[in-house]
């Protein structure tokens, strides 16, 4: 339980990495790191496919990221229609890639592939919690 609070609409409630949401509630985006082989995972994983280990620790992200790509969507799947238009994006934080939305406050001419971004944790109307990218 707990993970159903993540995102505009969550399709998953049970996962071994639901602590992700607890960190979001503290304003932090965290990845997992394998204690055995030190590989870092985002999205977080409970199991390491590199060494088959299952002993993970939570680690934070440092610094700002770079926008890899983005798109403004004008149509949305069922349940997301009220949000359009919104901007989906992929950003790279020193080799760790993060998928999410860009802040709706950014204007189109501010958004460029390669721009520096940071992560904001936000609470949505209805109490769901998520993160978004903003200009760094």
């Amino acid at each position: 339980m707990g993970f159903e609070k993540f995102g505009r609409i969550s399709f998953t409630s049970q996962t071994k990495v639901s602590e992700f949401v607890d960190y979001l509630e503290q304003g932090e985006l965290r990845a997992t790191r394998c204690r055995c082989c030190e590989k870092v995972f985002f999205p977080p994983r409970a199991d390491c496919a590199s060494c088959l280990g299952g002993d993970m620790e939570w680690v934070g992200f440092n610094g700002c990221g770079t926008l890899v790509s983005f798109t403004v969507v004008n149509y949305a799947p069922t349940g997301f229609e009220g949000d359009v238009p919104y901007t989906l994006a992929l950003a790279d934080f020193n080799g760790i890639k993060v998928f999410g939305r860009l802040s709706s406050k950014l204007s189109m001419n501010e958004i460029k592939v390669g721009m520096k971004v940071k992560i904001d944790v936000i609470t949505l109307p209805g109490g769901q919690i998520t993160y978004q990218f903003n200009a760094a």
Partner: peptide
């Protein structure tokens, strides 16, 4: 569209409102 959106990772990407056109659009950009 909603079902195809769930052809993306439902834990980590679908909660942002993903669809096929959006993913290909990101490749185009």
């Amino acid at each position: 569209q909603e079902r195809m959106g769930r052809g993306a990772d439902i834990m980590w990407e679908a909660p942002f409102g993903t669809m096929m056109p959006a993913y290909y659009a990101m490749h185009a950009q």
